[in-house]
Each structure stands twice: as structure tokens, then as C-alpha cells.
Amino acid sequence: MAATRLSRCDVVSRATTEQVREWLDGVPDPEIPVISVVDLGIVRDVTWQGDTLEVAVTPTYSGCPATSVIAMDIETALRNRGIDDLRIVTQIAPAWTSDWLSDKGRARLEEYGIAPPRASGGPDRCPHCHAQDVERVSQFGSTPCKAQWRCRECLEPFDYFKCI
């Protein structure tokens, strides 16, 4: 940055990108509030472009209605931390994959009653009673990222986070 032009951010020592990521880890997914937007793997990049903080967010599914709410929640959270000059950009490539879900996110999903995604295409156990005798009810569920399954042991239906 040119020495002749000191911006406000330089004066107040702007937040590091690590710090920003930590803050974003406190922003819950609007539809599955036990995991954060960082756990979900949709925050792809946090960079300072001059005085502007740029956050690159990728949609989980191209038509997911939560996408605009997420952008708004991220913006609100960062503004509350004193970052006024920010830009949220949508980045579609590389396409989001459920592999980007964090380990913390996976554990929280299961505690919440949602079976985490698995490469085999289905849950290995019921998130409620942990029995392995489970069956698929429908390939789709209450949000674009989930499918409906049922436990044959405890007979409870449960959500499974789709693996894509």
C-alpha cells in the first residue's frame, strides 16, 4: 500500500484473515444451525483486496434458497465485528462437494440427528441409536442437501446429508 495514503484499516490494525475465518465459524448455517458456514465448507476464500475484505462463498446446490440468507448472515456478522468495507462474491468453481464438510461439522450433524455424508452413498448407522440396519425412504429431503432415511432398529426416520 502506498505510504502516502493511510487508510482507516491501517490505523485500527485490520483483522487477519485467520481471525475473520474464526468469526465466520460462529455464523450458523440457517437451515442446519448446529454447523457453521465454515463447517459446511462453503467459505472458499477470505482475502483483503486493498481496504476491502472479500469473502468468496460457494453455493451447496445451485438453487439452494439459503444461499442469499447465508450471504446476508456473513455480512451482518462481519459488520458487527467492525468490518464495514466488505464484499461477498459467489464462486461456483470448483463445485462444492460434501467432502468439504469439516470433521467438527460431521460430528455435530450426527449429534443433531443428521447422518453425515459417506462416499458409499448412504449412512453407516442411525444417528439416534447407532444401529446399522437402515433403509432409504427418499433420495430427497427437507432441504436440497439432505435425503430421508429410516432406522429399522429404533424405527425413527432421520435425515442423511447427501454425498455429492
Binding site: 438453487g63 433420495q139 430427497f140
Partner: peptide, 20 residues
């Protein structure tokens, strides 16, 4: 109900693709 949800989700994906 399951088919209703599946169809709505399929439509939603298609709308997202339309947007792009």
C-alpha cells in the same frame, strides 16, 4: 409427500441452473 419433496427439490436445482 416424499415424491412431492423430491420433485420440488429437482425443480429447485433446475431453477438454480437457469439462473446461471
Amino acid at each position: 409427500l416424499e415424491e412431492d419433496i423430491a420433485l420440488a427439490n429437482t425443480a429447485l436445482d433446475l431453477m438454480g441452473q437457469t439462473q446461471m
